[in-house]
Design a protein around this nucleic acid. Structure first.
Lengths: 293, 293
DNA sequence: CGCTTCCATGAGCGCTGTTCATGGAAGCGG
DNA sequence: CCGCTTCCATGAACAGCGCTCATGGAAGCG
């Protein structure tokens, strides 16, 4: 017997919330309906999907598989709906879930989403901010919680994950320092947690004029603010320095400057969907203010 | 409103058969049910999916998208079902659809499927034979008609297709000739249509002792039979010559012999499914008789 | 001008998925 | 030890959907 989309949504909600009652609340259903639904699903599959206990419901191994694949099914059904409508000249209406690390979200997404919304008013977005460490944003896509991941390239993802993607932006790093500092290069160095690519790290070590970093900051706006207050200098991607305060001066690092490349990753069926193609096209548009090019 | 699995199966059948009534027959439904179902689906999507005429039903652009994505949804739902059952220690029961070219199907599949069926009696298979030209077997996977494609590597598929895969078998070509021939290398050359990779073609041209092919045969068993009857000699992959008649003698071509590599391709979600993993594991087992290693 | 072959439509009916009401089990605090 | 709360389970009843049956209309074909 077939599972229904409603049943899959129940599985998803139960896994997310960790309990039948909480899942019922988020789905605007009765706890009873959730219980019946899960039970029915389990009967259809011939398998127990959740261990129920005092603490709520925890997925069994079978439940984990079901939830994972179920999210894929739901997403694909939405792609079907949105794509079929778009193909017949209708409005493009779907919800795009974007996982990005903070600096990319702040710099890349606003102009792109503005333009995209102008062209397709029915589109809506979920932007989740994920620390770009470990699997980072790509994991969100692999596990079905996001449709598009913004990543730092090169991204050595396990090929078996089967994600597809491309390049969005390639830019050099620049040096920023307080405008009023008499000898900028004598200032202490403030490092940024996201400066973690091996290439960048190697470049840092090769620069003998750079002191070791005395401060390490996770957030780029905090870092900019620190430089503006004269705490030190920093090496950051060009676009991060683009919307700087007047107290911060930018100094190019020349042709040998390290670069950072931002790309995107998504799943093959989504990469073929109209909505995601449109989004990627907009992300490739000019995100950097013209005066900095 | 959600589409149901039954509705997606109707879309698939209508596209396949080209008419509502034929689809109804294959699905064991009434024509009325199919008509109602398609109408309901169209209402849910707000789009016309098929152009109806006396010639039956032809998909509109929107319909094509819907059918394509719908097949993906159905397949993913079956993966969910099979995977969840397998994860809870149950029998692995699903239908695996394999697209292969003839020689690979004949040589690689029988032993692998025998072993796999022994371990998982509930598995069933659809093996479709596709000429390995153009998109070949990979197209079957991309368009959702097969789960696993057996391909000749290297396979330059468009990366946007987002298929994943791996290597299954790497083997040298050998020379075969009639056993009773006094001077085998003076015989005419029989070529095989599937000897089409650029690498193999280049090797052929570089061999000055090889006469140009006078006969070109599409089927490898026919080719073997021709050699057995003394019509000529041929250069074929080792496994093709493995189950030869006694009238055929095999002669290695040495370390410079061209090789053929057979691999598989599948979609990312399927590559994560238990059933397909098991199948690939068996395909990687020793398909070549030990006396030829 | 029937005949056949398409698809469309309305009525009726059974199944499924929901709510409501209720019950049982298990921690938590006095 | 006993309520109180917070989980999930279960049975009854009802609504909507998805099916069949029966019928009708439109268009090619000899």
């Amino acid at each position: 017997m077939d599972l229904t989309a409603a049943e899959l949504r129940v599985l998803d909600a139960v896994e997310r919330t960790g309990s039948f009652s909480a899942a019922a609340a988020t789905l605007d259903l009765t706890q009873s309906a959730v219980s019946h639904s899960v039970r029915m699903t389990e009967r259809k599959l011939g398998t127990v999907l959740f261990d129920r206990g005092r603490h709520g419901a925890r997925p069994t191994p079978a439940g984990e598989r079901a939830v994972l694949h179920g999210r894929g099914v739901l997403r694909l059904m939405d792609v079907l709906r949105a794509d079929a409508r778009a193909a017949s000249g209708g409005e493009l209406d779907t919800r795009l879930r974007i996982a990005a690390f903070r600096s990319a979200a702040a710099q890349l997404l606003p102009p792109a989403l503005t333009r995209l919304t102008a062209r397709h008013p029915q589109l809506s977005y979920d932007v989740s901010i994920v620390r770009d460490v470990g699997g980072g944003t790509a994991t969100e896509v692999v596990e079905g919680r996001a449709d598009l991941a913004i990543v730092n390239l090169p991204h050595r993802l396990p090929a078996s994950a089967g994600l597809v993607g491309g390049e969005l932006l390639d830019e050099p790093y620049v040096l920023i320092h307080p405008t009023r500092s008499p000898d900028p290069r004598s200032l202490p160095l403030i490092d940024w947690t996201e400066n973690c690519s091996t290439e960048t790290q190697a470049w840092f070590r090769a620069q003998d004029w750079l002191p070791p970093a005395t401060i390490n900051v996770a957030d780029d706006t905090v870092l900019l603010s620190m430089v503006a207050h004269g705490l030190g200098m920093a090496v950051v991607p060009e676009t991060t320095a683009a919307d700087r305060a007047p107290e911060v001066t930018v100094e190019p690092l020349g042709p040998t400057a390290p670069r950072r490349t931002i790309g995107y990753l998504t799943t093959p069926p989504l990469s073929r969907s109209t909505a995601l193609r449109e989004l990627v096209a907009e992300l490739r548009g000019p995100p950097v203010p013209l005066d900095r090019r």
